[in-house]
Amino acid sequence: MTAPSSRFILICSGKGGVGKTTLTANLGIALARQGARTAVLDADFGLRNLDLLLGLENRIVYTAQEVLAGSCRLEQALVKHKQQPNLALLPAGNPRMLEWLKPEDMRRIAAMVGEQFDYVLIDAPAGIEGGFRNAMAAAREAIVVTTPEVSAVRDADRVIGLLNSEGVKPIQLVLNRVRPKMMASQEMLAVDDVTDILALPLLGLVLEDEQVIVSTNRGEPLTLGEGGSPAARAYINVARRLRGEDVPLIDPSKERQGLRARIGRLMHTKIF
């Protein structure tokens, strides 16, 4: 029983700490809540964290490696989310078995998972080395996560180069940790600057949001709640756009109201 329409989406960034795993967890929950059967594959098996963000760290018994070795069935390794049973986590491997996985293994395990799920989200490790290449082997399309900072954009560009050369497409961009106030005072790269430089379509724009840290502490992704915070709304919209819905992007300059915001806009109007 194969689902030919399954989508294998790599979530990657190049630079670490820009919000790849947070996006994977929130997007996974959001897609599941919207009715899509979703699996999240933690391809970062050296330093895995997806289990922690999803609150599933105590429930992992097996990994993809045991499945591939034939020592357990796929169903045994997939960890179902309690509140959102449409979502399952599969860790690619165990940090003690690092040497074992190859791109071909990742392709095989992703194909197996794809038989049961509509969406397979693959959380890539940071960097552009072997671990990233393994993760990329299993993907057909990609979401590149970056923040409006020079180092994150530069690393994203390297990753986009690799994705292009492997023929992974479409590649879409999620711009994370946007601070409207800093953008208004031109102390942060503008949204258009980043999309122009990387030449990618924008799939989502996530404002800097303290609630992300709170939700990480609890192991409950923001999209699990009622979606009150700006980041939760952004992640839910990323999921909807991914499923083909036409949801307009927010305009960071409109996120701020009042006199200060108006002065800010006036300050970066071109005068000559």
Binding site: E149, V150, V153, S185, Q186, L189, D193, M267, I271
Partner: peptide, 25 residues
């Protein structure tokens, strides 16, 4: 040139950093 750039110039302040970031990138 934006109003901000003009004021920066008049006050001899460092220009806003986003432009520098874009050029360097």
């Amino acid at each position: 040139m934006t109003l901000r750039d003009l004021i920066d110039k008049l006050l001899r302040r460092q220009p806003a950093s986003a432009g520098t970031a874009k050029q360097r990138l």
